[in-house]
């Protein structure tokens, strides 16, 4: 049976603005991916644990509250503690350009700011998977 790209879409932190997360979840599904949606108020621990059990290829997180500098790197740290290095981690939301280099250095492979077309995110995922399809 064909291999499917599996993506965990999560909203870490406390902000409740999930329009973007839901739109991207639908767009990824329409691009043929399997999307595990975990909803609001997720801790980094919950996100990492779910990503392991669901064996996803990609973790996609959205934050609009400004807590990205704290929460995104924490997810990377937890993945590293579990020696998981083959999951592509991306983030989106209201994220100032000057924060992006720091997030990338922490291991967030792609950062998508407001106005990014969903097609761009889809292409990025397809071209940057860390595991063979």
């Amino acid at each position: 049976m064909e291999r499917k790209i599996r993506v965990l879409v999560a909203k870490p932190g406390l902000d409740g603005h999930d329009r973007g997360a839901k739109v991207i979840a639908r767009a990824l599904r329409d691009a043929g991916m399997e999307v595990v949606y975990t909803g609001l108020r997720q801790t980094p621990e919950q996100i990492v644990s779910a990503s392991i059990q669901e064996d996803v290829d990609v973790i996609a997180m959205s934050i609009l509250s400004g807590a990205h500098n704290h929460l995104f790197p924490r997810v990377m740290q937890l993945l590293a503690e579990k020696s998981i290095d083959d999951v592509l981690v991306i983030g989106g939301g209201v994220i100032p350009d000057e924060d992006i280099p720091g997030l990338k250095a922490a291991g967030i492979a792609g950062v998508f700011t407001p106005g990014t077309p969903t097609t761009e995110t889809i292409e990025f995922i397809k071209n940057n998977l860390k595991r063979g399809i």
């Binding site: 599904r29 043929g32 999307v35 949606y37």
Partner: peptide, 13 residues
């Protein structure tokens, strides 16, 4: 599309 949204997990997180 062959894609899927798997949302059952939300209630069990």
């Amino acid at each position: 599309t062959g894609g899927a949204i798997l949302g059952d997990r939300i209630r069990m997180q």
